[in-house]
Write a protein that binds this DNA or RNA. Structure first.
Lengths: 252, 252
DNA sequence: CGTAGCGAACAAATATTACGTTCGAAAGAT
DNA sequence: ATCTTTCGAACGTAATATTTGTTCGCTACG
């Protein structure tokens, strides 16, 4: 799909200016106005922007998390490498709780043909694993959040409380030695905590960018993590601080 | 896809004869042997048949339930009509538990844009409803059964026990006044019972063919049902008996 | 060790999707 | 109320993906 690139352009333009006109976007992308309108329709459906006559305004507040569909594409290579590394840390036969988020989705894809018990906390991962014959898939209950399809709420908490895992693979929005592992969404954070509480070992996955960020909801201190897998662009400064907190850090 | 028709032909031929050769199937369908081999590969992956050198043998035991992918297509019209009728019986704002099975999947599709709280017992229905903005989707926990993707097990039971519904829409494998509502799978039957136990009103959906069948696992007596929606090809004989048991019967 | 069947690789045909253009209708401006 | 602009449905075309057939070296089985 050549349109993906254009959708990105439109999203960026609308987000940075707050709003943009159809003609303007057509000139920017080189596509016809009709195509732009169709794109805007798609993006509006994803909740990324809001249409008005003649253009669209951004619904993405600065500082807010960009939508899932966008994040899946970003740094895909790094995510794949991280996922492969995580897969290497998990032994056959283990039971694993797999957090929501795009990085964890890549982990799901890598685990598809392994002999494991996996409990994914996002429907995206559930779908990725639904066809796997070897793997024992267990779905926790919960309310899927729009777009993200992350399961949260009392049903999720109850499901996790009823289970015990060898390993938790946890994604995050921010992770620093000082502020610990943080998330944007409070409900998500509660689920992550429940997953960690039911697990013997915790592996956090975080692209380099996240090691310099702190999000709203505190999940757990860095010292509670057993391992962090990040990508090679992470600075030693950050990773050394995590290592000092007693975490095994892997850059890939 | 023109191939769907051919897959059906192959499935039928292999099932009725027990096994069939590649050349034979190529002659039957008018396709090349290579195409037949590819088809057999697909069907083998779905667990419908088993390949051997020169052909394939059926894995579908007589009397056993055919796989999900096949059943979705069968009597689709009747299922759609039944689904529309069920949708009419449900008022906005209700909370609904929606059983697994192909007929209930059609019900899910019809409910997509309604303002309801829906708890589907199959991941197929979950996926059909995941994009719906109006609708409050709640996923029960559980272990998805291969192909069917029906959620079963203690997690499902626990999720259902924690909820109360206005309406349960229940599918079945067999439904007669004498034997009640029955299912092929014991775990499924347990989930159906739990769903019924948490619901104020129970609507059963059943194509006409099911009104003459009885499957292994007993779920509930016909008298426990509030309504049955079936298609027009159902005989009065059957529907009258159900009506006599105190069930409202709708033929569409 | 020969032969029938297999499946990878390539090529052709076909279906699907994306895109642009036109045009009648609707929204907003004057 | 009228005019202008934008919208989106409908259609045709181009690009792309999927399906199907053919060839050919390889493998399993007799």
């Amino acid at each position: 799909m050549a349109g993906t690139d254009r959708l990105r352009q439109i999203t960026d333009a609308v987000r940075s200016a707050g709003r943009a006109g159809v003609a303007e976007l057509a000139a920017l992308t080189g596509a016809s106005e009709m195509t732009i309108r169709r794109d805007l329709e798609v993006l509006a459906e994803q909740g990324i922007l809001e249409r008005y006559r003649g253009g669209a305004r951004s619904l993405l507040l600065r500082g807010e998390e960009p939508p899932f569909a966008l994040r899946t594409q970003e740094g895909l290579d790094a995510k794949r490498r991280i996922a492969a590394e995580v897969a290497g840390l998990i032994a056959d036969g283990e039971s694993v709780v797999l957090d929501s988020g795009t990085t964890c989705l890549e982990v799901a894809r890598v685990l598809e043909h392994r002999r494991l018990t996996v409990v994914p906390l996002s429907l995206h991962a559930v779908n990725a694993l639904a066809g796997a014959a070897q793997l024992t898939l267990l779905v926790p209950g919960g309310r899927p959040r729009q777009g993200e399809l992350a399961l949260t709420g009392p049903l999720t908490q109850a499901s996790l409380a009823a289970l015990r895992f060898d390993t938790a693979v946890i994604g995050c929005c921010g992770l620093t030695a000082a502020d610990g592992l943080t998330a944007y969404d409070l409900d998500d954070a509660a689920v992550k905590r429940a997953a960690i509480a039911s697990s013997r070992r915790v592996i956090a996955v975080a692209e380099a960018a996240k090691l310099t960020r702190t999000a709203l909801a505190f999940v757990t201190a860095a010292s509670a993590l057993d391992a962090v897998v990040t990508d090679e662009t992470a600075t030693d400064e950050e990773t050394d601080r995590l290592a000092a907190a007693g975490v095994t850090v892997r850059k890939v």
